[in-house]
Amino acid sequence: MAKSALLKSSIGKKYWMALTGLFLCLFLVGHLAGNLQLLMPNSQLQFNQYALFMTSNPAVKILSYLTYISILFHAIDGILLTIQNKKARPVAYAKSNPSANSSFASRNMAVLGTLVLVFLATHMTNFWAKMHFDKSMPLMTQTIEAAPGMKSEYYVGRSVGQYYQVDQVKLPGDKEAEAGTPPKQLEVKNGTDVYNVQANVKVGELYKDLHKITFDFFKSKNKLFGVIPNEGLLFTIFYVLSMLVLAYHLWHGFQSAFQTLGLNSPKWTPTIKFLGKAFAVLVPLLFAIIPLYIHFTK
């Protein structure tokens, strides 16, 4: 009796590569739509509200776990397939002319995918991990001119019209007030909650400032590892190069997923191939414009 092996067989593994790959293409579109808000003027509040939504909405949570699983599965499955593929040709050709019959991208999906994974690790450390786990993540502030010539910094509360003057709010890391100065009335707890110190009552919630983290990251003048100057430029270049790698990966991957799922017909395949190439150029290009804009303007 013939048995199907949807996880173990060659074709089964390919289905999973295709399905997770296409799901990650959808993720890219969503992520890009979010990131493009950074190009809008005065987008700070909107972007931080969006970041809050993306880290707290239950539906988004389900999608994000699906995304993590897809990335892991796509990577592990890809490694397993590549190991088998290497084993299938134990002796290499002395002379090979692969460009005569296949594209660069199609032959280097494993290498390109590994590079994308390296980028992803750095990218998640720099932004995702900070947003989720960094206890000292900066909170969003705005400079407000209460009266002519009376500018000061305020924390922005999540309810409309809520502002807390920065020098009146105690942060977890702050030292105790010096003798002689009045003690601060407000205190930040649990990362973003504002408490009235005396009554110990929560009076409001603040936004994590992912917008500032992003802008500071790509504009940073610090030395990388304490030696290489202007790390913001290096981060920008690394990001743009990573998008180029992603573009190559998608150039082959998008249409390849359809072929693997059996969706190949003279009627539709030319359209799918065109869409795949348009996707592979447009999506990474738009992603790459954002750090370039942040680094070289303002």
Binding site: K3, Q84, K87, S102, S106
Partner: peptide
């Protein structure tokens, strides 16, 4: 199944 048992690799649609 027989194709997999023979030790052939997996298609990556290079064409």
């Amino acid at each position: 199944r027989q194709m997999d048992e023979e030790g052939f690799g997996n298609c990556t649609n290079t064409g």
